[in-house]
């Protein structure tokens, strides 16, 4: 009641402007530890998050963006703000990738969420070119441990930077698509798109 007395009509617009300005000032003051934004894509809304070093996380909607942000707050820093500016290049390049005009991403990455063998696996994945695929076993060999096929599966399943680190290019030796953070439909769509197929939906129907 008393609160409403002070709720002026332009409050929503003013708050939006204030929040945007806060993100800018926080960045300038070195207090923006994790910036994030969302972008729409053919595989659903994507969360993009970056530290001062580079993009640190890409998340699909099925991972629950709020839960992902809570994880980033716990693991990196609670100084997390919606700040689209820092992710402008990443968002633009993701858009270009889905439009078919981009085959490589040229944004700095922050791999601080991964360590050890998983990090080695991501290094191998970054060398898998657009339109190519490799089996989990082959990636294990390239990462220096041919027996660690399951560990490669784990590394892909926990890849904090899907799309930018192309874990979708890792498929099963028997020809199956394999699991994917964004769901198997999303993985089929990406592989079809990169193979130059216009029938992504049709391919999505193939296989069990």
């Amino acid at each position: 009641m008393d609160e409403d007395l002070f709720a002026t009509a332009d409050e929503g617009a003013e708050l939006t402007a204030l929040r945007a300005a806060l993100a800018g000032r926080a960045d300038a003051a070195g207090l923006l530890d994790v910036a994030y934004r969302t972008v729409d894509s053919p595989v659903g809304p994507l969360l993009l998050a970056a530290t001062g070093r580079g993009v640190v996380r890409v998340a699909f909607a099925r991972e629950d963006h709020d839960a992902v942000l809570a994880q980033l707050a716990a693991r990196l820093s609670p100084r997390v703000l919606r700040a689209p500016d820092r992710l402008e290049a990443a968002a633009r390049q993701v858009g270009e990738y889905f439009e078919g005009g981009r085959r490589d991403f040229a944004v700095p990455l922050d791999l601080s969420l991964v360590s050890g063998f998983r990090r080695d696996v991501l290094g191998v994945l970054r060398g898998l070119g657009y339109g190519t695929t490799a089996s989990y076993a082959r990636v294990a060999g390239l990462a220096g441990n041919p027996r660690a096929v399951r560990a490669v599966g784990t590394a892909c399943a926990r890849n904090p930077l899907p799309l930018l680190v192309p874990c979708h290019r890792v498929v099963r030796s028997d020809g199956g698509t394999g699991e994917y953070l964004g769901g198997t439909d999303a993985k089929r769509l990406l592989l079809a798109m990169e193979a130059g197929s216009t029938s992504a939906g049709e391919r999505g129907m193939v296989g069990p």
Binding site: L18, L22, Y36, L69, A70, A73, A74, P78
Partner: peptide, 13 residues
């Protein structure tokens, strides 16, 4: 601690 953005969202107004 939750992300600071949630603090701004909840208490900003």
């Amino acid at each position: 601690l939750e992300p600071f953005e949630a603090v701004v969202e909840r208490h900003g107004a």
